[in-house]
């Protein structure tokens, strides 16, 4: 399989997303408002005590800053809608006639989009860095960063594949927005974006660690901020994450093949 066509898709994705650079920049700037809210809320919660669940205020704030950066680098943003639109408008027909793997094509564009959004998000964050710096406290152990690299790649893949699956639901449903927003709500809480998951009661935390949402955002963020305590726990997490990547990719292929059977291409 030639990779050149996906390189072209990647370059087109870069160009296409640079058009929306101001949208990303505005979104990143607004996320600083969210960060201000987080700092105020958690600052008030820590008032009068050194630690919550074994982590101090700086470690907790570092976690939220990391989550924010990761959102712009590995989150699926509107990939589900793009897939959905292409199915609904019949634009997908052109891919059925060409020797191109639709999943890989969309993934190439996703990688380009995150490169653009992630880079742009760094600008307001760098401007705010003098304010953030005194609160940042990252771990010193090298193994956490070594484990974080594959975790980040797998997380991006997981994020994209889940969004892709939701987009493919358009083969069956005309309107998928409510599914997406509902999934986003689940992902927001079980992905650790609202609070670090280790603050949950132990049985709930244990349960969440077997769900795919845990590996979408929390797991790499927890590795980068020292919330995964041992290399063994990191390896086990990577194993479960790989399982979910493969499982969801299987689901995506299944939905694609079944969906195409229902799809009717009309037009000249």
């Amino acid at each position: 399989m030639s990779l050149a066509k996906y390189r072209h898709a990647f370059v087109l994705g870069l160009q296409g997303n640079l058009v929306y650079r101001w949208n990303f920049a505005v979104r990143a700037s607004l996320s600083l408002l969210h960060l201000a809210y987080v700092f105020i809320l958690w600052g008030a919660a820590f008032s009068g005590q050194e630690s919550l669940a074994g982590f101090n205020l700086s470690q907790t704030l570092t976690y939220f800053v990391t989550i924010l950066v990761l959102q712009f680098f590995i989150s699926a943003m509107n990939e589900d809608y793009e897939v959905s639109e292409e199915i609904r408008n019949g634009l997908i027909n052109q891919f059925l006639l060409k020797p191109i793997h639709y999943f890989s094509y969309r993934f190439s564009i996703f990688v380009a989009a995150r490169l653009v959004s992630g880079s742009l998000a760094l600008i307001p964050l760098l401007l705010a860095l003098p304010l953030l710096w005194p609160h940042l406290e990252y771990p010193t152990a090298t193994w956490t960063y070594v484990a974080a690299v594959p975790a980040l790649i797998l997380s991006a893949f997981l994020q994209f594949t889940l969004a892709y699956c939701f987009g493919l639901l358009t083969f069956w449903f005309l309107e998928i927005q409510s599914f997406i927003i509902l999934s986003l709500a689940v992902e927001t809480i079980l992905g650790g974006q609202v609070f670090p998951l280790d603050l949950l009661p132990a049985p709930l935390y244990e349960l969440s660690s077997y769900l795919p949402y845990y590996y979408q955002m929390y797991f790499p963020a927890a590795l980068l901020t020292g919330r995964i305590a041992t290399p063994e726990a990191a390896i086990q997490g990577l194993g479960i994450q790989l399982f979910w990547v493969l499982a969801l990719y299987g689901v995506a292929q299944f939905l694609w093949l079944r969906g195409l059977r229902r799809h009717t291409a009309v037009g000249g």
Binding site: L52, I189, F195, L199, L200
Partner: peptide, 17 residues
């Protein structure tokens, strides 16, 4: 539920905000 869940979790670890 997400908004209330956040409050619920924080108060598992602190008595006052």
């Amino acid at each position: 539920g997400v908004n209330l869940g956040l409050i619920g979790v924080i108060y598992q670890h602190t008595e006052s905000i």
